[in-house]
Design a protein around this nucleic acid. Structure first.
Lengths: 195, 195
DNA sequence: CCTACCATGTAAGACGTTACATGATTGG
DNA sequence: CCAATCATGTAACGTCTTACATGGTAGG
């Protein structure tokens, strides 16, 4: 269900096509919620059917068209209901913890590789999120600028603060994962394999 | 795919029925990976078809039966291949961060509730995981005891250490989430809503 | 006898991934 | 004219959730 609200959050800033939205999922909101285009286009159609958004066919060149969507009053209402309602939490499903808990079944080399990959994976995410945080601080993303342009000045601080806050969670998450995996490498060193 | 390996990890300790496994998902391994019975039974059938496990029909009373599964050589091989191979990481999809990043759209009361719910949710998880950690330290879970019973004594330390290690990740995760949400409450206090 | 527990599923639908598929436009 | 980008999907498959559905057994 979150995909729908990620899309609405973007469309509330201004009308966009499926393609535009997809680009956002590669950059800004994609750092919080991933979605491929094969999921975005059908979801937009469903949202249009539910009358949360409305699409307008625009001509492009001589034969090309693009469908630009905007949020309807019902869509706005639905979005606010989601924002003001409780979030439902998914049950825990942590492949890395699951594997770690049975790591004695792996060879020492495989165990090391697993943890090194884990560090590399989360380091990659961390780099992206920290870069995004810096851009937020500098108001350097096009989306954020458009967002602030349609927001009363007295609310600007709030918008930026919450955006920052959202990314901070991911940054902390990545740091925690990296710290954990590093301690895992130390653990393996201390376990005296083969001795 | 992890469900399959969670099931194999359990069955490697000793033969069990779908019902037995389901009980484990309510307690031990369920703290790392959740699965409902409606997913477990079909997956067992699929695994049996793939010859990773083998089921034996056992009589129970006069008419009742239970199907007890054990891991085959091919299943053992498949499990070790998973343990020794790389883990594939899912792309980020964090509903809480997504919502947090747009929290200016919520009323201050709803924003507070969201963060308070977040704290309550992760505190609940944290309590469970810390309790499980204590049981691991005390070798107090039936699964762990059976596990150690089928493990050479020189490997006991490793088994316990990795089990502990797996749960530590979740404990840290929960602490990070709680800390983040608490800072969010402070943030809201400092934003001067309505002033 | 009755309650708690043992035991095993099916069905429908939402959500997500991966691969496939096609064509137009713009700028150099 | 050619490459990069714009633009929009379908299809098949796997995973997961929620709800429904049924019956046997063991112990008090």
């Amino acid at each position: 269900m979150s995909l729908r609200y990620a899309l609405l959050a973007l469309l509330r800033v201004g009308p966009m096509s499926g393609y535009d939205l997809q680009k956002q999922f590669d950059t800004s909101v994609g750092h919080l919620w991933h979605a491929p285009d094969s999921q975005i286009y059908p979801e937009l159609r469903k949202m249009e059917k539910a009358e949360l958004i409305e699409g307008e066919e625009q001509v492009r060149g001589t034969r090309g068209t693009r469908r630009v969507y905007h949020v309807t009053a019902a869509g706005e209402e639905d979005y606010l209901a989601w924002m003001n309602g409780p979030l439902s939490y998914a049950r825990v499903r942590e492949p890395a913890s699951l594997k770690a808990a049975y790591l004695e079944a792996a060879t020492p080399e495989a165990a090391r590789s697993f943890l090194e990959d884990h560090i590399a994976h989360w380091q990659g995410e961390l780099d992206q999120w920290e870069a995004e945080l810096e851009r937020v601080d500098a108001h350097g993303t096009p989306m954020l600028r458009e967002r602030l342009a349609v927001t009363p000045p007295e609310d600007h601080a709030r918008v930026v603060a919450f955006k920052r806050f959202g990314y901070e969670n991911l940054v902390e998450r990545a740091r925690t994962e990296i710290g954990w995996a590093k301690r895992g490498l130390d653990l393996i060193d201390g376990l005296g394999y083969g001795s």
